[in-house]
Structure formats: structure tokens, C-alpha cells
Design a protein around this nucleic acid. Structure first.
Lengths: 338, 338
DNA sequence: TCCTGGCACTCTTCGCACCCGAGTGCCAGA
DNA sequence: TCTGGCACTCGGGTGCGAAGAGTGCCAGGA
């Protein structure tokens, strides 16, 4: 177990390194932090911390920088979440309240997060699977062609074309629309399949094929998780990454373009609170020198999607976590109101 | 007027510089291109080209690189559009045909363009203003709350909330829905305002307020050009920009995040064919060292939106123009089919 | 037992001088 | 009008030495 002072030394190293972006030495540490001990003592502590794998030196005779393990300890034990100041909170709220529709909410959230954290922001659209159905609409586009429109309680709209096996009359269409809505409106997505199972039986034989097709399209839409979209912003902040960054930035940009990777990344965060994945803790190789700070957000008490930021492992964790948490909270509120 | 040979020299300089990314000297030119003259002659030609502002040297005693003006001449007079090869065409078509909905079409187009050109691809969603209305749907969410859903012929869906000044009965709603659709379905957006102008008069006095509100929301949605969205991809290709690129890449990333800037950029291209904007021809400062190759695309004969790529001024113009043109053509086909 | 000051050692990072080569401009001659 | 030759320029790479930052270790003191 590390002594209290050694933990303080680690904390100081992390803070200084995050601030200066340069390896921090024993002398500089004692000057900038009131540790009450001499550089020599700090050197001993540093040697111990290095032994344990919390810090490392880029080359012999350079200062120390925290390792992933060091950041992990820092995040878990040494630093809390820095709450947003009241003015910041008001600014967040004001900015989000101007949104006119779901796209706008997400777009504003991305910009806000990117600005607050000065990092790359990722916001997942409210997921379908955990939402409830607000309304299902059926439109006849051609004799044997329907459009299915699904509206969720988070204001999201999905549409699908349906090619009917047989022509479908306007009366049947109205009937189906009414029955469908009376059964599923207000219900959770996961409950829908069992609720509509026996619906074809209520129709004439000639219409059953079409009804089944419509239903299966609806169910497909409901479970289509890979359709989950996300929005990214603040990529310009990647340029603050480091000096050697042509090599660093490229895999990150590539990873950010792979929606699958990002969705998986956000999905991994299971905690109710803010989740931090540091460096190699990220499964994706291109993100091995980045940290991901993510959190779930939702309109009710329950999370329907995730949002977060991606930045260098050398980031201001308390501040970033605070910003992410605050934004998630306010987005949830906005979604609940709309 | 420049002699034929000098134009050839310029062409050779552009081609070599695009290939090698290094300033090209007179000796190297005569070795790599069969100009039939000695380096000394080429030097004279180069001096003339430099005098005219088509090329420049980064420092004394370095090779020459083309200026924006030089690229402009190259694009206008010295190089055509390189057509895609049949296999490439087939690949494009196959890739786009797998798309399931409009979002998917746009997403695939972006990826395709980025891969083909190895540059940043920008695709604007089919614009509302030039489209026609396929269907307008009205849903009652609460006694005094409606949702307006607008479906366009390009498969795009827009939804808006409408807060009614007075409760609106289900019968009135059906009436409005029917009248609205009979008037505007299949019509162009620009014609809609005059078509619905007198609609409130057909309703009872108590409903007129609501009808007007619905109509004005609809009209707002139709003209809301700033709502035009776009999708960006291939930003990782920015890392191939150059050596000094921390400074170069940043303003580009920032410009790419400003949708307004990009929309304006694409919008500027008025030509029916492929438009190329080189370096300082781009109004936005951050894009002064990039070129934008863009073209309109559409489902019918008419363009409904734009797409293009953003890359360094040192790019393969013929190839890029060919790829952009081909992709636009096939996207148009796909949209027409759906 | 733990902290401290001192000291020798290790590396990296300039700054500087230097050379080399690519490329140029110009000129005289074909 | 083109060509070959020649002197000149300048950026990039290399080698060396000094400076500086930082470390590890050790012996002495609370």
C-alpha cells in the first residue's frame, strides 16, 4: 500500500503533467506544490511509484509521466468530479433550451460538450430499444406500397418502406393503423412483439400477408440497434493532442469514423455514473492513447443512450467528468420536457 | 499568351508535384517527361511561368510549385476529367445499391467518396426546397398538441410539433389532413404557399386558428434551408496533408464543423458540371490551402443537393473530378429508383 | 526509521560550424 | 531560339561541445 504522501505525489504529478504537457521532475514538483518535503524525498517516492507502475520516464534523466495505471488510480481515488459552477450550469441550460427538434438537441449537445471540455464529443441518438412508442403511422404511397412511420417518446422518427404482397385497401389500412396504435402506443419497445403477435388473425385472409409484412418491418425497426446513430463534434480539438501527433491523430480519426467502434465504446460503460476508460483499457487499438469519458442519459430516470468525450489520456479528468455529467443531466431534462 | 511548350511544362510541374509532394526542378522534369528540350530551356520557361504567376518557389534555390493560378489553368485548360474505369463504376453502383434508406444512401455515399478520392467527403442531404411533397401527416398527441410529419419524394422525413391555440377535434384533423394532402401532394415546395393560402376559410371559425398555425409551421419547415444537413467522412485523410500540417489541418477541421460554411461552399457551385474551387478562391479563410471539388446531384434531371470533396490544393484533379462526377451520377440514379 | 543535502552521472537539447547537393540565373555560342 | 557551362544560393544533414534538467545513491541528522 502506498503511503499518503506518495499518493499526494502522484496526484501532483498528474496535475502538473496535465497542465504543462511535459514530464515533471522532483524539483519542479516541490516548488509548485506544498508537499513539505525536499526534492530528494520526492525522488524516493517517485522511484517507488515507478516501481509500482504508476509513473514512467520517457527516457533516463527526464521527468516522470503518469502511466495508464497512474491515471486510473488518480481517477478512482485521488480526484473527485469537479462540479460545474452555477454560471456554467445556466449557460448549459440556456444553450440546450433553444433546440427545436431532436436533431437539434443532439447537435447542440455535441457542440456544447466539445466546447466545455475542449475535446472530441460523441453523442448517441436516444436509442430505440429502451424508448416507448408514441405513435405508429401508415401511409399508402401506391396500391401495394406503404410507408411505416414510427414516432418515439424521445421525438425520434424512423420510417420504412413496406412492399405489400397484395394490394391493401384504404379501409384495411385505417383499421390496421387504429388497432396497431391502440395496442402499442405508450408501450416499451421490448413489449411490442408480444402485443402484436396475434394481430393478423383479426384481418381477412387476403390482408393477412400484408399485415404480417408490416408487423415484421415494425419489429425489425424496433430491434435494429445497428441503426443507432451518433453525432461527433470538436474534432479540431484533436490538434491540441501533442507534438508528435501526425501519428497519434490518424488512428483516432479513423476510429471516430467507425460508428461501430464508437457505439461499442460507449456501450461498454455500464455504470450508472460517469465511466472513464483510460488508454489501453479501450479495446480499440487506435484509441490506446486516448481516454473516453462517458455517461448514460435519458428522459426519465432511465438511460436511453450515452454521450461522452474522447481525449488524450493526459486530460483534466475531474473537469471533464463534471462537464459530461452536467450535460447529460440537462439533456435528460430537455428530452423529458419535449 | 503562353506557348504550347510552356503549357506542357506547367502540366508536367503540376503532375510531378501532385505525385511527389516536393518542389520540382528543371532537371527532374526533363528526366521524367519527354519534353524534347534541355533543362536550361525548361528553366527559361519556368522563369516565364513564374513571371506570369503560375508557379512559385518556396525559397530561392528550390524547385517550383504551382500557385493557385497555376492549378486553375491546369484544371481549365490542361487536364480533362478522368473517367472511372468500368470495374470502378460497377463497384460504385454495387456499393450504393445496398442502401436501405435515405440516411444509409448518404452515409454510403460519403464513405465511397472518401475512399475513392482519399480525401474528405461532404454530402448534403437532398434539399427540401427543390423537392416535391409526397405526403403530409398530422397526428394528435394531446388535445391541443399535434405532430406534423412531412415526407418528401426523396424519402426525407421532417417532423414538427404544433401547439394549437384551441383544442382540435379528431374530425377536423382528418378533414385538414385530407384537404392538405389533396392540395399539396406531388407539388413542388415552392408552389405550396399559394396552394394552401385560402385553406383556413374552409373551416369553422373555432378551428381556423389551429389550421393557420399548422400551415405556418408547414411553410416554415419548407423554407427552413438552414436546417439542411450534411454528412462528412474521411477526415482521417487529412493526415496525408503535408508535413507542416498541425497548422494546416486545424482550420480545416474547424471549417468542416461549421455546417454553415460548408453549405455555403457547396452552394457557391452553380455550374451544371463539376465545380472546382482552388485555394484562395474559397471564401472561408481556413480553407485557403484546400481545394473543393463539388457537383450537384438529383433524382430527376434536376439537382436537389450537392456533394463534393475537400482536399489539399495539391490534389489529383482529373481523378477527383471523375470520381465526384461518377458518384453524383449513381446517387442520382439510386434516389430516382427509391 | 525516515528525511535531507550533496555529488556524480546520464541524457537530451540546443547552438554552431560545416559540407553537400539540388536548383537557379545568366551568358556566350551554335 | 535552344543549349551547355559556370558561378552562386540556400536548405538540410552531420558532428561536436556546452548547458541544463533530472536521476540515483550515499552518508549524516532528527
Amino acid at each position: 500500500m502506498l503511503s499518503e504522501r506518495r499518493l499526494q505525489v502522484l496526484r501532483a504529478i498528474v496535475q502538473d503533467y496535465v497542465g504543462t504537457e511535459e514530464p515533471v521532475g522532483s524539483k519542479a514538483l516541490t516548488e509548485r506544490h506544498k508537499l513539505g518535503v525536499s526534492p530528494a524525498t520526492v525522488r524516493n517516492d517517485m522511484a517507488a511509484l515507478e516501481e509500482e507502475g504508476y509513473i514512467a520516464q520517457p527516457h533516463t534523466s527526464a521527468g516522470r509521466i503518469p502511466t495508464d495505471k497512474g491515471y486510473r488510480l488518480f481517477v478512482d481515488k485521488l480526484a473527485g468530479v469537479k462540479p460545474m459552477s452555477p454560471p456554467e450550469r445556466r449557460a448549459i441550460q440556456n444553450f440546450l433550451e433553444g433546440a427545436v427538434d431532436l436533431d437539434d438537441v443532439v447537435a447542440r449537445t455535441v457542440r456544447l460538450l466539445a466546447q466545455l471540455t475542449r475535446q472530441v464529443a460523441v453523442v448517441q441518438y436516444p436509442s430505440l430499444t429502451r424508448s416507448t412508442v408514441r405513435h405508429v403511422e401508415l401511409l399508402s404511397l401506391a396500391p401495394a406500397r406503404l410507408m411505416l412511420v414510427l414516432i418515439t417518446d424521445t421525438g425520434r422518427v424512423e420510417q420504412r418502406m413496406v412492399d405489400c404482397p397484395a394490394p391493401f385497401g384504404e379501409a384495411s389500412l385505417a383499421d390496421l393503423r387504429a388497432r396497431l396504435n391502440s395496442r402499442v402506443a405508450g408501450r416499451r419497445f421490448t413489449d411490442v412483439p408480444s402485443l402484436v403477435e396475434d394481430l393478423p388473425e383479426a384481418f381477412e385472409a387476403e390482408d393477412r400477408g400484408t399485415v404480417s409484412t408490416v408487423l415484421s418491418t415494425l419489429l425489425e425497426t424496433l430491434v435494429e440497434e445497428n441503426e443507432e446513430r451518433l453525432m461527433i463534434g470538436g474534432t479540431a480539438n484533436l490538434t491540441r493532442f501533442g507534438h508528435d501527433f501526425p501519428l497519434t491523430i490518424r488512428p483516432v480519426l479513423e476510429a471516430l469514423e467507425e460508428q461501430v467502434v464508437l457505439l461499442k465504446l460507449l456501450g461498454e460503460a455500464k455504470d450508472p455514473g460517469v465511466t472513464v476508460r483510460i488508454g489501453h483499457e479501450n479495446a480499440h487499438e487506435g484509441l490506446n492513447s486516448t481516454s473516453v469519458v462517458s455517461v448514460g442519459y435519458g428522459s426519465g430516470g432511465e438511460a436511453v443512450a450515452k454521450l461522452g468525450v474522447v481525449g488524450p489520456t493526459r486530460m483534466d479528468y475531474p473537469g471533464t467528468m463534471g462537464a459530461v455529467r452536467a450535460v447529460a443531466r440537462y439533456v435528460g431534462q430537455i428530452l423529458a420536457e419535449s
